[in-house]
């Protein structure tokens, strides 16, 4: 430390001498380098001021007393800056630590979501899910059972960020304990509701839509817990309609019955599931209407399911100047044969 001080003294002295002699830009550039080095060596602003005074006293003998004394005042003022600077540094360290913890949590959360494409002769599946922050309150799932039934789910935890993300993992774990209910959407939601109701804050809730497609009967069975309605595309008539099902959001009341509904998918028909982060996108300050969303899907419907959801996300992200306000999830399941 003492050595550092001596070398900094020498450095500053050389710098000041050269500047006083030449008044050149080059010497000023050296001063900038010096301040960087100071910060690296954790030197405080008041130490720099006192360094300046000692160097200057050596260079210019017989400094007027007032000039020397005035530095006492300047030193006192700089001490305040020094404290603020050190506080800033410790906050910055703390922030870096939190950030790295958050990154680990976000990676863990990603591992809760299904990975890998499902490549089947019977259906074409595409999904995109993008959190507004680092962690997501949206949950989605797709899974095949032994009979090649494919189950799809989109759930949305109220709010966003870490509290929402923690509740989202609860849905994942509860789903994993209910494999036999994957072909019984209403029963699945009833069981999830019991878990959520017991484990969630009184003013939080989760919405969810779950369905599964049976590739032999071509029926899609579904139930909803207060979730944003999806869409069904009818290829024969080239038309869209809402995919709605009545049912209370998860977590409000311990005993809730859900209705199960079903519809037949013809070749080329598809189901669209989404979270309210999609319909709450604002374009030019206005929420997008469901009709606008339908038009966007229509524009891309000749593409694969994954390409459709990717393109719609890019369009809406761009329309919002790349600032998502809420977690965004969009899933498409199309009957191929």
């Amino acid at each position: 430390m003492e050595e550092t001080k001596i070398s900094m003294y020498q450095l500053y002295k050389d710098m000041l001498t050269s500047y006083l002699k030449s008044k050149s830009e080059h010497a000023l550039y050296h001063a900038q380098q010096f301040s960087k080095e100071m910060m690296e060596k954790d030197m405080s602003p008041e130490e720099t001021v006192s360094l300046h005074l000692s160097v200057f006293q050596e260079l210019a003998e017989d400094l007027p007393e007032e000039v020397v004394d005035s530095f006492d005042l300047l030193l006192e003022v700089m001490i305040g800056y020094g404290l603020a600077y050190r506080e800033h540094q410790s906050l910055r360290d703390r922030q870096q630590q939190l950030e790295s913890e958050l990154n680990v949590a976000a990676r863990m959360q990603q591992s809760l979501l299904p990975r890998g494409e499902i490549s089947l002769d019977s259906v074409d599946l595409g999904v995109i899910s993008v959190p507004a922050g680092k962690m997501s309150g949206d949950y989605y799932d797709y899974a095949l059972d032994e009979q090649e039934n494919i189950g799809v789910a989109v759930a949305d935890v109220i709010g966003k960020g870490i509290p929402a993300a923690m509740s989202m993992s609860m849905i994942k774990y509860a789903m994993d304990t209910l494999p036999e209910q994957r072909t019984r959407p209403a029963e699945l939601l009833e069981n999830l509701n019991r878990v959520v109701e017991r484990n969630i804050e009184s003013d939080m809730f989760i919405t969810m839509m779950y369905g599964f497609y049976d590739p032999r009967s071509h029926q899609f069975y579904y139930a909803s817990a207060g979730h944003e309605p999806g869409f069904v595309y009818d290829a024969h008539n080239d038309s869209f309609r809402s995919l709605e099902a009545k049912g209370l959001v998860l977590g409000v009341s311990p005993k809730v019955r859900y209705n199960e509904d079903h519809l037949k998918l013809e070749v080329g028909d598809f189901i669209v599931l989404l979270s309210d982060g999609v319909t709450e996108c604002r374009v030019d300050g206005e929420f997008i209407e469901r009709e606008q969303l339908v038009e966007m899907i229509r524009k891309y419907k000749h593409l694969s399911a994954q390409e459709i959801v990717d393109k719609i996300f890019l369009d809406l992200e761009k329309a919002q100047e790349f600032q998502l306000r809420d977690d965004f999830t969009l899933l498409i399941l199309r009957r191929k044969v």
Binding site: D156, I158, G159, E201, S202, D203, F205, T207, V252, D276
Partner: peptide
């Protein structure tokens, strides 16, 4: 009303 707002009404209902 957004979903957080809805949550407040649920909390009030429970209370």
């Amino acid at each position: 009303i957004d979903s957080t707002g809805l949550g407040i009404f649920i909390g009030v209902l429970k209370a």
